[in-house]
């Protein structure tokens, strides 16, 4: 990376991602406690780990398609969901910034390598779930 400002940009992206994520998580937790649960489950059910495990109260029961309606209904569980997904996407943006900066440097070997990493990330996110669920 010739251009050392990239490191500063990456640093800001990481910080912003974490801050957005944690804000959503904290707001989500507060709503969860204020409403005593979310998405049709009570807090007692969620926090009894073995009950939650046996009854499938986990990330699988939260439908990503319902995020918008969940947020507008002020459902704490969906705020937490958004927080966690922002967290997952935060490091991905870093690889993407790296990819752009390698392209700028005409460092095609590393453009290729960063592309493979991005491919793996999206393969795990979009392709594998179709086969294992």
């Amino acid at each position: 990376m010739k251009n050392h400002d990239d490191e500063i940009i990456i640093s800001y992206f990481l910080k912003a991602g974490v801050m957005i994520s944690v804000s959503f998580l904290i707001v989500g937790v507060i709503i969860l406690f204020a409403k005593n649960g979310g998405d049709g489950f009570t807090l007692t059910q969620m926090s009894s780990y073995n009950y939650a495990l046996a009854h499938g109260i986990d990330s699988k029961s939260v439908s990503l398609g319902k995020i918008v309606s969940g947020l507008s209904a002020i459902d704490g569980l969906y705020f937490i969901t958004v927080g966690l997904w922002v967290l997952i996407f935060t490091p991905i943006t870093v690889v993407f910034i790296g990819w752009l900066s390698f392209l700028e440097d005409k460092n095609y070997l590393y453009v290729g390598m960063a592309s493979i990493v991005l491919f793996n990330l999206f393969f795990a996110m979009l392709v594998i779930p179709r086969f294992i669920v």
């Binding site: 998580l25 989500g28 937790v29 969860l32 807090l43 969620m46 926090s47 780990y49 939650a52 495990l53 499938g56 109260i57 986990d58 990330s59 699988k60 029961s61 939260v62 569980l77 937490i80 969901t81 927080g83 966690l84 997952i88 990330l121 795990a124 996110m125 594998i128 779930p129 294992i132 669920v133």
Partner: peptide, 15 residues
């Protein structure tokens, strides 16, 4: 992301 779809993340604990 694989854990998510497999239901390994309990949102209460993870938060």
């Amino acid at each position: 992301s694989i854990y998510w779809y497999e239901g390994y993340i309990n949102l209460f604990i993870a938060a």
